[in-house]
C-alpha cells in the first residue's frame, strides 16, 4: 500500500504542484530515495533517447555517443543546482532544507522522464511532416519541468514570486562561479602534479 503511494504522489505533484509540494514539505510525503531514483531514471532515459530516437529527428553522431558523458549533462547540473540553490537560499531566509531542495528538484523531473519516453517512442513512427509533434512534446516537457521547479522551490522556501525569480537568477550565477572555481582548482592541481612529476624525473636522470 505504501509502495503505491510512492508512485501516486509524484504524479499528483505533477498535476497539482501547489498542493503537492506543500504536502511534500509539511506532510513529509516526499522521499529522498525516490528523488534519487528519478534522477537515475532521467539519466537512463536521456541515454536511451540519444541512442534510440528515430533517425528523422536524431541529429546525434552515433560514433560520438558516450553514456558516461551523459552524466555531466544531467547529474552534474542537478547537483550543482541543488548546492547553489541551498547556498543562496540559506542566506536569503529560505525555509527549505537541503533535502527538500533535492526532493523538489527531483520531483519536478517527472514530466521530463515520462514525456521523453513518449517522444522517443513517437519519434520511431513519425515522418518529417509529423516531426513538429515530437518537437512540441519536447518543448512541453521542458516548460512543464521549469514550471514545477519554480513552484517547487517557491513552496519549499515559502517565497514570493519575485523573490523566487531573483533566487533563480542568483542560483545560475552561483553555478557559474562554482564551475569557474572547479576548473581553476583542476588546472592548479594539474600544474602542481606536473611540477612534482618534473622534479621527480629530473632527480631520476641525475641520480
Amino acid at each position: 500500500m505504501l509502495k503505491m503511494e510512492w508512485i501516486k504522489f509524484p504524479i499528483f505533484v505533477c498535476f497539482h504542484p501547489f498542493k503537492g509540494f506543500w504536502e511534500l514539505k509539511y506532510e513529509e510525503k516526499g522521499r529522498i530515495s525516490i528523488a534519487f531514483l528519478f534522477l537515475f531514471c532521467l539519466t537512463v532515459v536521456a541515454i536511451l533517447k540519444r541512442q534510440f530516437t528515430g533517425f528523422i529527428v536524431n541529429f546525434n553522431n552515433p560514433t560520438e555517443l558516450n553514456s558516461i558523458a551523459e552524466l555531466q549533462y544531467i547529474v552534474l547540473p542537478f547537483i550543482l543546482w541543488c548546492i547553489a540553490n541551498w547556498s543562496i537560499t540559506t542566506l536569503m531566509e529560505g525555509e527549505g532544507k537541503f533535502k527538500e531542495i533535492i526532493m523538489a528538484t527531483a520531483y519536478a523531473l517527472v514530466p521530463l522522464i515520462s514525456l521523453y519516453i513518449i517522444s522517443t517512442l513517437i519519434s520511431l513512427v513519425i515522418t518529417w511532416e509529423e516531426a513538429p509533434l515530437y518537437f512540441f512534446l519536447e518543448t512541453i516537457a521542458t516548460i512543464w519541468f521549469l514550471f514545477l521547479l519554480f513552484i517547487g522551490i517557491m513552496t519549499v522556501h515559502q517565497y514570493t514570486v519575485t523573490k523566487t525569480v531573483v533566487t533563480f537568477a542568483l542560483t545560475v550565477i552561483v553555478i557559474a562561479v562554482m564551475l569557474f572555481l572547479g576548473l581553476l582548482i583542476f588546472s592548479l592541481i594539474q600544474q602542481m602534479v606536473s611540477f612534482v612529476e618534473t622534479i621527480y624525473r629530473e632527480l631520476l636522470y641525475r641520480m
Partner: peptide, 18 residues
C-alpha cells in the same frame, strides 16, 4: 537513405513503408 544521411528522402520512404 539512412546511410546517406538524407532525412527528407528517408521520411518519404518511411511514409510509404508505414
Amino acid at each position: 537513405f539512412k546511410n546517406g544521411h538524407s532525412r527528407s528522402y528517408y521520411s518519404k520512404a518511411y511514409k510509404r513503408y508505414r
